Simulated assay, not measured.
Amino acid sequence: MRLSGFLPGFPRGVFLALTLAASPALALDPTPAAPAAQTSGFTIFAAASLKNALTEASAAWKVKTGEDIAISYAASFPLARQIEAGAPVDIFIGADEESMDYLAGKKLVKPESRKDFLSNDLVLIAPTGGPDKVDLTAAAVTGVLKDGRLALGDPSSVPAGKYGQAALTKLGIWDAVKDHLALADSVRSALLYVSRGETPLGVVYLTDAKAAAKETRIVATFPEASHAPIRYPIALTATAKAPAGKFLGWLLGPEGAPFFKRQGFGVLTAK
């Protein structure tokens, strides 16, 4: 099942950019704004779960340098395919190694610039009116779902969905819920399903749950051993402009780290 009314996806050849200057610091709606004219600066494609932290960091860079940054947020692999199709992007930040490996294999990123930037945790959430705690067992999860569905990023394209499927499988829950999913095209869409009360449970990153703390609550945290480590690789694209390289260096250093730590990310590169 797919619920409608959220991020429509990124058709091949249509490059959507969200201009930072017009963006709120916190917005759960993952739908990017229409492209804005950009006379200077550079462009970033980033995993949807980075929206709050990266938007704040980019605003600070704008104040520091006066440079404009256009950002599009969505699921990692569709963004990688946009870059492959020729999207004019300078920095890519994915939510899994696979999407970055895909671009590296096609020589579309500068290998020397690639870093494992951030880490995250995977959690089970419910609307604020839901249970306080849910055991990570098939009986407990299906008991809460009843006739409802579990919101999950589509494992075929959304890293959070891949991690979620792996964790649910490891814990013996997948077979009980696989026919009762509300598949989302980004982790932020999965978050919206729960925050709007359209599903009783959802699997998202810890940072997404914190972004919607007024509308959702964490009812369980998946053990680290239940899924592969959640890593966010970052790299300059092969055609990146010089200002993007300066921003990447700043972002990976001690000045950029606090924006991500505040949202709950683990920062792997701060000096």
Results as ranks from 00 to 15, higher is better:
V203D: 02
V144E: 13
D179G: 15
T239R: 11
N120T: 00
D90K: 01
F10H: 05
V141A: 08
H227E: 07
R114M: 05
F117I: 04
W250A: 06
W61F: 10
V63M: 11
M1S: 14
L181A: 04
A235K: 10
S113G: 09
L3Y: 05
K51I: 02
V144A: 09
G5F: 10
E112Q: 15
D101S: 10
F247I: 01
A240Q: 04
A270Y: 02
L206D: 13
Q82R: 09
K110H: 07
R81C: 01
S189C: 12
L192F: 03
K146A: 13
E215Y: 05
T137A: 14
L18Q: 11
D135C: 00
H227T: 05
I71A: 01
T199S: 15
F77N: 03
P131R: 07
S119A: 06
L268S: 11
L136E: 10
T55Y: 03
V219F: 08
T55S: 08
G256M: 14
G249S: 13
L20G: 15
Q263P: 02
P155W: 05
K133V: 08
G5D: 01
S49K: 04
L122D: 03
Y205S: 11
K146M: 10
A213Q: 09
G266K: 14
V194A: 03
G105F: 01
V187W: 02
A87Q: 02
L7Y: 06
E84M: 02
T19G: 14
P35F: 13
L192C: 12
A166E: 14
A70C: 12
A244E: 06
D179W: 00
G5N: 05
G13V: 01
F260A: 08
S40Q: 14
W174P: 07
R217D: 06
E215P: 08
